[in-house]
């Protein structure tokens, strides 16, 4: 099989899988919230409501487009794409599993293998903030504007702690390649970075919640204050695109947490596991964090915005700097050298 078709197949399958998982997450969110609040949740469309996401999608397609008066028509249509595309592109470098053979071509189970894949995720993921702030500004609505500004301030503030927490993992693995960082954790449960970098894990986890605008940091769409935040004026498929982008960002963040701290697709004490076992292990670990996203949302109350900025700048940033300090010091003494 030509190399191009292998690439196309992998890209289509992984991207399709992520979209399917995102659709499943919208259902899981409603089901889990229902269980937590002692309700039943969606149960009309299909068995146990499993076809609900499809019904939602069809409904979104046939809903009316409303473009508010005074809105910038081009930017208003461009913003949902600019928000969703970066979130969906970052999945390209996630190393789901090791070597496999597709139609005689030896390859690995990730869309692309870059030697700077950690940098790629940060660079492309950081672009999502443009869609949010443009969506907020172009709607010509005060709630949207405030929501967009808040979301962008929050996303850039927590990006710092996230990058610095990631850097301490890069120091330990000695590479910016996510696959190398995963392989550095092979060998057993005790080799996972979560044990040697507990502070970085905590900082990274908190930062992922803030980066994806999830509870308890969902100030971008804090209903009692800002109605719907930056997508107040959006309807139909454009709203759905914002929504999908948000869930895709959540999935990628959960994948990154697993890659950095839980050994990615490595199966403990079985380093030569076949690719489908590794993929299963990766998805099982990822689903823990995806469940955590939902669980936290329906359990914790919301912060206040000044508390959020205080936590980001006065607690997380100094702690992240301290962490890279200690990690870098140990590495310079040759502790992590192999």
């Amino acid at each position: 099989m030509p190399l191009f078709f292998v690439w196309l197949l992998k890209a289509a399958l992984i991207y399709g899988g992520m979209l399917g998982l995102a659709a499943g997450m919208t259902l899981a969110e409603r089901k889990v919230s229902a269980w937590i609040q002692w309700r039943i949740g969606p149960n009309r469309v299909g068995p146990w409501g499993t076809l609900q996401p499809i019904a939602d999608g069809i409904k979104f397609i046939f809903k009316e487009e409303v473009v508010p008066a005074g809105a910038n028509p081009i930017l208003f249509r461009l913003a949902p794409m600019m928000s969703a595309i970066p979130a969906m592109l970052t999945v390209a470098v996630i190393p789901f599993a090791g070597e496999l053979s597709i139609g005689g071509v030896e390859t690995t189970l990730s869309i692309a293998d870059l030697d700077i894949s950690a940098l790629y995720v940060v660079a492309i993921g950081g672009l999502g903030v443009y869609g949010v702030i443009l969506g907020g500004w172009s709607s010509n609505s005060k709630y949207s504007l405030m929501g967009g500004l808040r979301a962008s301030a929050q996303m850039i503030s927590y990006e710092l702690s996230m990058i610095l927490a990631m850097l301490s993992i890069v120091v330990m693995g000695g590479s910016l390649d996510l696959r190398v960082l995963t392989e550095a954790q092979a060998g057993g449960l005790h080799e996972w970075n979560i044990w040697s970098q507990p502070l970085a894990f905590l900082l990274f986890l908190i930062a992922t919640f803030a980066e994806t605008n999830r509870h308890p940091f969902d100030f971008a769409e804090c209903e009692p204050e800002l109605v719907g935040g930056f997508h107040t004026e959006y309807s139909s498929m454009k709203f759905a695109l914002f929504f999908l982008g948000e869930y895709c960002a959540m999935i990628v963040m959960a994948c990154l947490t697993v890659t950095f701290f839980l050994g990615g697709g490595e199966v403990p004490w079985w380093p030569s596991a076949p690719w489908f076992v590794q993929l299963g292990a990766f998805l099982a670990k990822t689903s823990i964090f995806l469940f955590l996203f939902i669980w936290v949302r329906w359990t914790l109350p919301r912060f206040r915005f000044d508390q959020l900025m205080g936590l980001g700048w006065k607690v997380m940033l100094p702690l992240a700097l301290l962490n890279i300090f200690v990690t870098g010091g140990l590495a310079s003494m040759g502790v992590y050298g192999s």
Binding site: W7, A11, F60, F62, E65, M81, L89, A92, K238, L241
Partner: peptide
């Protein structure tokens, strides 16, 4: 190494643009 990302970008862009266009074409207007 970046060529597969270009393929993914094509898929993602197609999905995003068609999403924005489809409800513009099919959605009702009152």
């Amino acid at each position: 190494d970046y060529a597969p990302i270009l393929i993914l970008f094509g898929l993602v862009l197609g999905f995003a643009v068609s999403n924005v266009l489809i409800s513009e074409l099919l959605g009702r207007r009152r």
